[in-house]
């Protein structure tokens, strides 16, 4: 095995009396992109929160060699009283690195909006700010929980390309939860399909395609058929 960034073993995670996750083993290599696909309520968000250290009450262990781990939530979760700039530098209080923030603002395509308040942003713009905030701390791992589910299809494609580009440029490993099979296949090196509760990882699909990828690549279509079958067996669809 090569040097992994993250190694997560969850023997069991329960809420009250229901077991949500069981026997999950997941590794993340440096610069790798991994997606989690699975039925609603199967515990994907919970797994991500465990990795982020937000959920500490579980049986298992989390071995992290990553320096910074950042989280992009399903909603932008911007502080409404701070400007775009201040939101991006949120983790450094008021003495954030202005040049780095300005570069991130340019990179996520929000040039000129540094001083805007969140209420003046569209959903897609707000999510881009959230991604920039995630990148501010120069993380080794970026965790994303359905980051694009609230934006329209075209914005989503643009944001996906943006995410890949940024991950490539800043050498970030991505662990991503999504409900969108196309998104998972387009972005990831590996796609993990999860079972219904109590969830295990049902199948792992490797997507051996170089980046940048073509969304119309026949291999992607093939893998999509495969994962749809798998999801059907898992009674997701």
């Amino acid at each position: 095995m090569s040097e992994h960034l993250l190694d997560i073993r969850v023997e069991r995670k329960t809420f009250a009396s229901t077991t949500v996750l069981q026997n999950i083993h997941l590794q993340l290599q440096p610069r790798e992109t991994v997606s989690l696909l699975g039925p609603s309520g199967c515990g994907k968000s919970t797994l991500l929160r465990i990795v982020a250290g937000l959920e500490k009450d579980f049986q298992g262990e989390l071995d992290s060699r990553a320096g910074e781990v950042a989280f992009v939530f399903q909603e932008p979760r911007l502080m409404p009283w701070l400007t775009v700039e201040q939101n991006i530098g949120f983790s450094a209080d008021n003495h954030y690195d202005k040049a780095w923030v300005a570069q991130l603002i340019d990179e996520v395509g929000l040039t000129g909006f540094a001083d805007a308040l969140p209420k003046a942003l569209s959903g897609g713009m707000a999510q881009r700010v959230a991604i920039a905030r995630g990148l501010y701390s120069r993380p080794d791992v970026l965790l994303l929980d359905e980051p694009f589910s609230a934006v329209d299809a075209f914005t989503r494609m643009k944001l996906q390309d943006l995410l890949l580009e940024l991950a490539e440029r800043h050498a970030i490993a991505l662990l991503l939860v999504t409900h969108d099979v196309d998104e998972a296949l387009y972005l990831s090196d590996r796609v993990l399909v999860m079972d219904n509760r109590p969830s295990r990882i049902r199948q792992e699909l490797a997507v051996q395609l170089a980046h940048p990828r073509d969304r119309r690549d026949p291999l992607l279509a093939q893998l999509k058929a495969l994962s749809l079958t798998e999801l059907q067996r898992a009674h997701v669809i």
């Binding site: 982020a52 250290g53 937000l54 939530f73 979760r77 502080m79 949120f90 983790s91």
Partner: peptide, 27 residues
């Protein structure tokens, strides 16, 4: 709670959480 979680994610101390998130949000 979701805003508070952002601070927890960054490992904010209690006073920092109050100053950066709780106070402005409660204003």
């Amino acid at each position: 709670r979701k805003l508070v979680e952002v601070g927890q994610m960054y490992g904010f101390s209690r006073t920092r959480l109050v100053r950066r998130i709780l106070l402005p949000a409660a204003l």
